[in-house]
Nucleic acid binder design. Structure first.
Lengths: 259, 259
DNA sequence: TTGCTCCTCACGTCACGTGAGGTGGC
DNA sequence: TTGCTCCTCACGTCACGTGAGGTGGC
């Protein structure tokens, strides 16, 4: 007959764990010897092995008696479910391994693959790093707030990267922001931006679309000097041009300012 | 800017988890808005993603700052270790899946493969079920008490299964136990058992060998009617024969009574 | 106004781990 | 005698979950 220590040792668990299984009624309390020590027989070894198999497969202790006492039909059904959960956890752990390797590329962790592609193509444009980061941060926040809408917007932006006008506007923002608000080049940039904004008609069935860019702009203002005098002037100029041409059905600042 | 709920939702965790990360200093407390609500920027999304990647890979929260703040060289070293642990856990889970499938065959859970092989070959002998179970339980307890010694003993027993004398003794025990202690067939059985016991010389360098069979016999006595009058008489007869032929260096009951 | 989210304690939970203080076995 | 194991409380731990009681935002 085995002492609790021998049983624990053989099963590869602590004596405390076995006492817990007794307290929870998973494993019947065995006979005691003259000095009050628990003495285990072979049946206890078998019972413990069955308990551990389930516990280590992730079954909560409170559900183990249920599984062990189930009759044949129900038991296989329960075991199938547990096995499916195990498979799912294995898949999850594998995914987490691949995420672990991307730990030093925050974009890969926070952005879906379409956005990563956009950012990679954007890098080829050669913007200032802080501008690039502001755009990345904008996408991250936008995805957090409204993933579906953002995905749609992003798709149109990605295709626009082939458009020299779009790229020109991006570059224009890049080196215009720190200038004087009276810099004459701002007018040309406003022209280009307004023209572009009109081309980028967004699908009108996007729900609560106008929520997204407001958040993004708030971020950009803080993170980058986009609330600079030059940027405010630019904003004015573009708004003038857009309201002059067509009465917008929704706030046109959204799509234009997104990149 | 995001509220704690939006951040949590996007990251797929609870708001409580985020508050815990603040409390533990993993994620810096963000600014509050006018009504005291936390407001998160893109950097928080990035930081949280990095924290979760580590936490979900099994890194304890207390060690996460250590990993995140490590400089390049140390970081890759730490990540390698975490990755190795992840791989190990995946292997473990796969093993547990295979164990789960054997849940309705308790022998497979408690015995190593050599013992399972022995039990399978023993089944072909066709003993009574309670005798077979007693033998199985004997092996289980013996493995729990002294796996190395038991492995050695088991190997010799497995090869003995090809020996008709060994099989005859097993069968003899099977139907002799419930008889009268004066049954004349017990003498023939005692002869066979004693002859066999003398052939089964065990390696003398096994440490504390005599501990094993005593435990096993206690079990057999309880589990099976092996403390019956017939069994006790048989024991007497065999001991007589063995002490008559050669003075044993260690208690000869051990190896003989093991099967 | 209603329902939803947010806030801060504070206590609960799950599966044990860890002494505390004492006794039994080799 | 010494060191090891066992016993029973009881409290600690880890990573949150769950109200409690209250306020803010659409």
């Amino acid at each position: 007959m085995l002492t609790i220590g021998q049983l624990a040792n053989h099963a590869g668990v602590s004596t405390k764990a076995i006492r817990v299984y007794h307290a929870k009624g998973l494993l019947p309390e065995p006979e005691r010897d003259a000095s009050g020590y628990r003495r285990y027989g072979a049946q206890a070894v078998i019972d413990l092995a069955r308990i551990l198999t389930l516990a280590q497969a992730g079954v909560p202790l409170s559900r183990i008696p249920d599984v062990l006492d189930a009759d044949a039909g129900k038991a296989t059904e329960q075991l199938d479910r547990i096995d499916a959960e195990l498979r799912a956890r294995i898949r999850q752990l594998k995914q987490r391994r691949t995420r672990l390797r991307q730990l030093d590329q925050p974009d890969q962790l926070c952005l879906p693959s379409e956005a990563i592609e956009y950012m990679q193509r954007l890098r080829a444009v050669g913007l200032a790093e802080r501008h690039e980061h502001a755009i990345r941060d904008g996408w991250i926040l936008a995805y957090a707030l409204a993933p579906d809408i953002t995905r749609t917007i992003l798709t149109s932006h990605t295709s626009l990267l082939d458009d020299p006008d779009y790229v020109a506007v991006l570059r224009g923002y890049d080196d215009a922001i720190d200038r004087s608000p009276h810099d004459p080049r701002l007018d040309a940039l406003a022209d280009a931006a307004a023209t572009l904004a009109q081309r980028m008609t967004l699908p009108s069935d996007l729900p609560s679309f106008k929520d997204v860019p407001r958040e993004v702009i708030e971020l950009l203002s803080g993170h980058l000097g986009i609330d600079s005098p030059a940027w405010q002037r630019l904003d004015q100029l573009i708004t003038q041009r857009l309201t002059a041409t067509a009465p917008p059905t929704h706030d046109p600042r959204g799509p234009r300012q997104h990149p």
